[in-house]
Computed example of a mutant assay.
Amino acid sequence: MSRPTSLRLPEALRARLDDESRRIASAPSSLAVVLIDEGLKMRRFGGIVFRDGPTGRRAGLASGPDVWEIVRDLKRHGADPDSDADPVHLVASETGLAPELVGLAADYYATFPDEVDDRIAADAGAAEEMRALADRRERMLSA
């Protein structure tokens, strides 16, 4: 649910908002909501940035991969009943990231789990589609 909020923007800022809205074909109010949301998240989790991609904007480490990629790996290690190792340190050693950065991604996930889980699910779905396409192509070429 949303509610109206009035903001007074300096003229130069309003002009930049309008220009960017036209560039990405979005309403200024929609863009403002996205930017405020992302700005508050980045302010709370220093080191997190938002980047564009084919599936939309997503949270990532300023100096590393997307948050969802780190969380996916943390979940994989956390689900291993045969391992006593700390998933944060395992992912850090696998990726070359500092444990603090892996922890930052975990903290972001703890606060915004739906956002990250949706991205993980989208990636799994895209991977499954690619496997199915490759199987169909292989069957067609071998027939």
Score class of each variant (00 low, 15 high):
Ser2Cys: 09
Ser2Met: 13
Arg3Asn: 13
Arg3Gly: 10
Pro4Cys: 08
Thr5Lys: 14
Thr5Leu: 15
Ser6Phe: 15
Ser6Lys: 14
Pro10Cys: 00
Pro10His: 07
Ala12Phe: 12
Leu13Ile: 11
Arg14Leu: 12
Leu17Gly: 06
Asp18Ile: 12
Ser21Asn: 01
Ser21Lys: 07
Arg23His: 08
Arg23Cys: 06
Ile24Ala: 12
Ile24Val: 15
Ile24His: 15
Ala25Glu: 15
Ala25Gly: 13
Ala27His: 15
Pro28His: 03
Pro28Asp: 06
Pro28Trp: 00
Ser29Ile: 11
Val34Leu: 14
Asp37Val: 09
Leu40His: 04
Met42Gln: 08
Met42Leu: 05
Met42Cys: 08
Arg43Glu: 11
Arg43Lys: 12
Arg44Ala: 13
Phe45Gly: 01
Gly46Pro: 03
Gly46Asn: 03
Gly47Gln: 04
Ile48Tyr: 01
Val49Lys: 06
Val49Asn: 07
Arg51Ile: 11
Arg51Asn: 12
Arg51Tyr: 11
Thr55Glu: 14
Gly56Phe: 06
Arg57Ser: 08
Ala59Phe: 04
Leu61Cys: 01
Leu61Met: 07
Ala62Lys: 01
Gly64Val: 03
Pro65His: 10
Val67Ala: 02
Val67Ile: 03
Trp68Tyr: 01
Glu69Leu: 05
Ile70Ser: 00
Arg72Cys: 03
Arg72Thr: 02
Asp73Gln: 15
Asp73Phe: 13
Leu74Ala: 07
Leu74Lys: 04
His77Gly: 01
Gly78Asp: 02
Gly78Leu: 01
Pro81Ile: 04
Pro81Trp: 05
Ser83Trp: 03
Asp84Gln: 11
Ala85Pro: 04
Ala85Met: 06
Ala85Gly: 06
Asp86Tyr: 04
Val88Asn: 03
Val88Ile: 02
His89Ser: 14
Leu90His: 07
Val91Tyr: 02
Thr95Ile: 01
Gly96Cys: 08
Leu97Met: 00
Leu97Arg: 05
Glu100Phe: 08
Val102Thr: 03
Val102Trp: 06
Val102Asn: 01
Gly103Tyr: 03
Gly103Phe: 02
Ala105Met: 02
Ala105Pro: 00
Ala106Cys: 07
Asp107Tyr: 08
Asp107Cys: 09
Tyr109Phe: 05
Tyr109Leu: 00
Pro113Ile: 09
Asp114Pro: 10
Asp114Met: 11
Asp117Ser: 03
Asp118Asn: 05
Ile120Val: 02
Ile120Met: 08
Ala121Glu: 12
Asp123Phe: 13
Ala124Cys: 05
Gly125Asn: 14
Gly125Gln: 14
Ala126Arg: 15
Ala127Gly: 10
Glu128Gln: 15
Glu129Ser: 15
Glu129Gly: 15
Met130Ile: 07
Arg131Cys: 07
Arg131Pro: 09
Ala132Gln: 14
Leu133Trp: 15
Arg136Pro: 02
Glu138Asn: 14
Arg139Lys: 09
Leu141Arg: 09
Leu141Gln: 09
